[in-house]
């Protein structure tokens, strides 16, 4: 006879295995940091994305797993966590984890405003702030340029009032780059967020050089193409040049390729695994590939 109790026990079995991650190996070196051009503040070059991976609803066991990932991220020296109102329950899951971890002071909170209603922007940001449980966001970005004119006005006003520290805009998968470029030229943005990885390199043409020229920090999303790249490469042997750049996995190869671009400030891979988050943060370390090796890396991946 299946009882309600047995049902619940089975459904939460995964949760029993949850535990905060074991302490990271002693003397883990701090990850490489990059300066935010508009302020000079330095932040670790690998952050934590939450698209899909942190959208676990009210599943207590999975919420604890996400907390474990965040704990490992902070232990490894990570700081920037990025989310959006679009990401389902990711915001309350982050808030849950931050509460469990005692609201780590290292957190660099990166959020987005995502609503077509200009009047609703400030209200949505306030709701997001409550879900995270932070006093204020470090960075708020206009998600995918939705109602960008009105929201940028709101964000710059909030920055002037000290209610957030940095303002940015985002795009993904190569969308609306022309408008993106125009906004970058016309507005004093602190951050831009865009898709850039070893196979999606359109940003190299105009946006990354423009960011360097304008002194705008760059957050790179989809570094693994939503996991498609790491899955595709998982069964391929690491090339010999991987050891030249200190990469012990394909994930680190892909991240080091991105971080080696001089305009990139932070890459934000998403993961639900503690070992992967440690591996990702550890990729933010010298040596990084030079321009010639980057070309070889991209050419090699294209052939696989």
């Amino acid at each position: 006879m299946i009882t309600r109790r047995r049902f619940i026990e089975a459904a939460t079995a995964c949760g029993a295995a949850f535990a905060l991650p074991a302490p990271a190996p002693a003397a883990t070196p701090a990850p490489m940091a990059r300066a935010i051009p508009s302020s000079g503040e330095r932040i670790p070059a690998v952050g934590l994305g939450t698209w899909i991976t942190f959208n676990v609803g009210d599943d207590a066991a999975l919420r604890d797993e996400c907390t474990g990932v965040m704990a490992a991220f902070f232990q490894a020296g990570g700081r920037l966590i990025d989310s959006s109102p679009m990401y389902g329950s990711s915001q309350p899951v982050i808030g849950y984890g931050l509460g469990k971890l005692g609201r780590p002071a290292a957190l660099f909170s990166a959020e987005k405003v995502w609503t077509s209603s200009p009047a609703h922007g400030a209200q949505q940001i306030e709701q997001s702030r409550r879900l995270w449980g932070v006093e204020r966001f470090d960075l708020v970005q206009v998600h995918n340029l939705l109602a960008w004119e009105a929201h940028l006005e709101t964000l710059f006003a909030m920055k002037a009032e000290g209610r957030l520290r940095y303002v940015g805009i985002t795009t993904s998968e190569g969308r609306r780059h022309e408008l993106f470029e125009e906004i970058m030229r016309r507005h004093p943005l602190d951050f831009v967020q865009l898709t850039y990885n070893i196979v999606d390199r359109e940003a190299e043409q105009r946006l990354l050089p423009l960011a360097a020229e304008r002194g705008t920090a760059v957050i790179v999303n989809r570094p693994f193409r939503q996991g498609a790249l790491t899955r595709k490469l998982a069964h391929q042997p690491l090339p010999g040049w991987a050891t030249e750049i200190g990469a012990g996995s394909w994930a680190q190869v892909l991240l080091k390729f991105i971080l080696a671009h001089p305009a990139v400030t932070v890459a934000i891979p998403a993961t639900s695994r503690i070992d992967h988050v440690r591996e990702n943060v550890a990729a933010a370390a010298d040596p990084l590939p030079d321009a010639a090796l980057r070309q070889r890396m991209a050419a090699h991946v294209r052939t696989l």
């Binding site: 309600r4 049902f7 619940i8 089975a10 459904a11 995964c14 899909i52 991976t53 959208n55 676990v56 609803g57 599943d59 066991a61 999975l62 679009m86 990401y87 389902g88 995918n144 340029l145 939705l146 998968e173 969308r175 609306r176 939503q226 639900s272």
Partner: peptide, 30 residues
């Protein structure tokens, strides 16, 4: 949503299969 035709079905997927099926487990248990 602008340039909606550039979006793929994957762009709208907000959760993983694991979370999806666990949702039914939790719902059945409840």
């Amino acid at each position: 949503m602008s340039e909606w035709w550039t979006y793929r079905l994957e762009s709208f997927l907000l959760f993983s299969p694991r979370v999806y099926w666990r949702m039914f487990e939790l719902h059945n248990a409840a």
